[in-house]
Design a protein around this nucleic acid. Structure first.
Lengths: 131, 131
DNA sequence: CATACATCCTGTAGAAACTACAGAAACAGG
DNA sequence: CCTGTTTCTGTAGTTTCTACAGGATGTATG
C-alpha cells in the first residue's frame, strides 16, 4: 500500500501521468483513503511499469489496452486471446527486425571508429525497403 | 521528381505530416516548382521512410534528428559520430531486449492455444524488473 | 498546539507529434 | 471554359503527456 508520490518515485513516472493513465482507463480507478487520497498496491506498480515499457516500445495506449486485456480477461475464449496475441505478435516482430537492422548499423559505425577509421553512416539505407 | 501527393501515396505518410516534418526540421525545405508547389526526389523518399521507421520504433523527433545527423554530417569527427551512435545504440539495445521478452510471451500464448490449452497471459510479469 | 512545509486534490492550460479542415490558387481533362 | 483534383497556407482538433494554480490535508518541529 502506497501513496501516489511513493508510486511515482518508485516507478519514475510523474504523478500527473499516473493520474492521466487513470483518466485514460489504462490504470483502474485507484482505491481512495478516507481522506480522498489515492492508494496503490504492488499490482498497480506492475501494471504501471508495463504501460511505460509498452509506450517506450512504440505502442500507443490503444494497443496497451489490448495487451492488458489479454492479462485481465480470463473469460476470453482461447481463440479470442490467441487472435489478440497474434496481432500484437506481428507488430512486435516487425519492430524487432527493424531494430536489429538499426542496431547492426550503429554497431558497425562504433566498431569502425574504434579501429580509427572514419566511416559513413547508412542508417537510412539500412532501413530502406523494410516493413 | 514527384509531387507531395505522389510521395504521400508512395510512402503512406499523410500530406499534412510531410509538411509538418518540413516545418519541424526533420525533412529539408522542399524545392519548389515555379508555381510554388513542392517537388521531391528519391533521397527525400528514403529520408521520410527512415523517419517513419524510427518513430514507430519509439524514437522521438529529437532522436530522429540525432540519427539523421550521423548520416548528414560527414564533417563530424570520428569520436563525435561514435558517441552519438553509442548513445542511440544503447537505447536500441534496451528496446530490443524488452521486445524479445514480450515476443516470447506472446508466442507462448499463441502456441499454447494451438495445442488447445487455455493459458493465462503474463505480459506484465514478463516485463517486470527490466530496463 | 501552532506554525511551516510537503503532499495531495481537481481543474485548466501548454507541449509534442500529428491530423483534419477551410478557403484560395493553380492545374488537368473533356 | 467548366468541373474536379491537387496544392497552398493557416488554424484548430486529437493524443499523450507535463506543468501549474489554488485549495485541502498531512507531518514534523519548536
Amino acid at each position: 500500500m502506497m501513496s501516489i508520490g511513493t508510486l511515482s518515485k518508485q516507478s519514475g513516472v510523474h504523478i500527473e501521468t499516473i493520474r492521466y493513465y487513470e483518466r485514460a482507463g489504462v490504470l483502474p480507478k485507484a482505491r481512495r483513503a478516507p481522506n480522498g487520497r489515492r492508494i496503490y498496491g504492488n499490482e498497480d506498480a506492475g501494471r504501471l511499469a508495463f504501460i511505460r515499457h509498452a509506450r517506450e516500445l512504440g505502442f500507443e495506449l490503444v494497443s496497451v489496452r489490448a495487451l492488458l486485456a489479454l492479462q485481465e480477461k480470463p473469460e476470453l475464449s482461447c481463440k479470442a486471446a490467441s487472435d489478440l496475441a497474434s496481432a500484437q505478435l506481428s507488430a512486435v516482430e516487425s519492430r524487432l527486425s527493424r531494430l536489429t537492422v538499426l542496431r547492426d548499423e550503429l554497431r558497425r559505425m562504433v566498431r569502425a571508429c574504434k579501429n580509427g577509421r572514419v566511416v559513413d553512416c547508412r542508417v537510412i539505407d539500412a532501413l530502406t525497403n523494410m516493413r
